[in-house]
């Protein structure tokens, strides 16, 4: 099989806007799943609500498109009831960080054997561009018309603190690294979070002087700080540049996990 064999051809075209980053994330995920040798019969995609969460509807496996923020709780039931199934969750920043925040930290703590891929476009895309817990300070959205005044959630660091066995963050620009990180997540027993900073030209870029897709991707590329570089800056006592986010593998460990296939 190739990645294309995993797609529901009869559901094309998909709902994503031109220039959306979600397609790259789905493709990287399917390539990683394919690399694992998983089959369409033993793989389940689960999601909540939002642009990201429409992804399972385009994949030719069993899939649960659930309620807003609750995907990880549904996924916990699927995985514990049948550990033979491989479980992958697609989620977004509104889904995971806001309404689903509590389920997120407990999924990390339980370390249930699944991989959650968070498409973090820093905005509520499907509802038309409202601010989310990851909308950067100062950024314009329909609910932050004077610029967001709130600090952002660092989802990857939260997952590390809450106990997930594998946590990585990349961007939709870093396609190869992203695919490798997802593959590592799929391989690691326990909970894996792969956060992907991705572009939403329609509802984020348009209001934040990043109208072109290329501008958005360039923005993601130039604001990504490799974890090794961050650590070096810390060692040297140098400041971390303002507005940067860390990319790379933040943790890979073998804490006790639940739902691991015997």
């Amino acid at each position: 099989m190739s990645a294309a064999d995993w797609q529901r051809i009869d559901r094309l075209p998909n709902i994503y806007c031109a220039g959306c980053g979600n397609g790259s994330v789905i493709n990287c995920t399917l390539a990683a799943v394919e690399e694992m040798g998983w089959t369409r019969e033993n793989t389940v995609f689960i999601s909540g609500i939002g642009c990201s969460s429409r992804a399972p509807g385009y994949i030719l496996t069993d899939s649960l498109h659930t309620t807003h923020g609750r995907a990880l709780a549904f996924a916990t039931g699927v995985k514990l009831a049948n550990p033979a199934l491989n479980v992958v969750v697609f989620t977004g920043d509104g889904d995971l960080a806001a309404i689903g925040g509590n389920h997120f930290i407990h999924a990390c703590r339980r370390n249930v054997d699944m991989t959650a891929i968070c498409m973090n476009n820093q905005i509520y895309g499907m509802t038309g561009g409202q601010g989310s817990p990851t909308t950067p300070r100062g950024a314009i959205s329909t609910t932050t018309p004077y610029g967001s005044a709130e600090p952002v959630f660092d989802l990857a660091e939260l997952a590390v603190a809450a106990g997930a066995n594998h946590v990585a963050r990349w961007t939709s620009y870093h396609v190869k690294e992203l695919m490798a990180a997802i593959a590592t997540g799929l391989q690691t027993p326990g909970f894996s979070l792969v956060e992907v900073m991705t572009q939403c030209p329609t509802n984020y870029g348009r209001r934040n002087r990043l109208r072109q897709v290329s501008d958005m991707i360039e923005h993601l590329r130039t604001h990504a700080l490799l974890v090794q570089k961050r650590d070096r800056l810390i060692r040297e006592g140098k400041p971390i540049p303002e507005g940067m986010f860390v990319v790379g593998e933040l943790v890979r460990r073998h804490r006790p996990a639940m739902g691991v296939r015997a």
């Binding site: 609750r70 709780a73 996924a75 699927v78 514990l80 049948n82 389920h103």
Partner: peptide, 20 residues
């Protein structure tokens, strides 16, 4: 499984039901 709240409890039950 003791979930983090009742929202998650019924979600987990529904997920489990889909595995039969």
């Amino acid at each position: 499984i003791q979930m983090e709240d009742e929202i998650a409890s019924i979600a987990a039950a529904i997920g489990a039901s889909w595995t039969g």
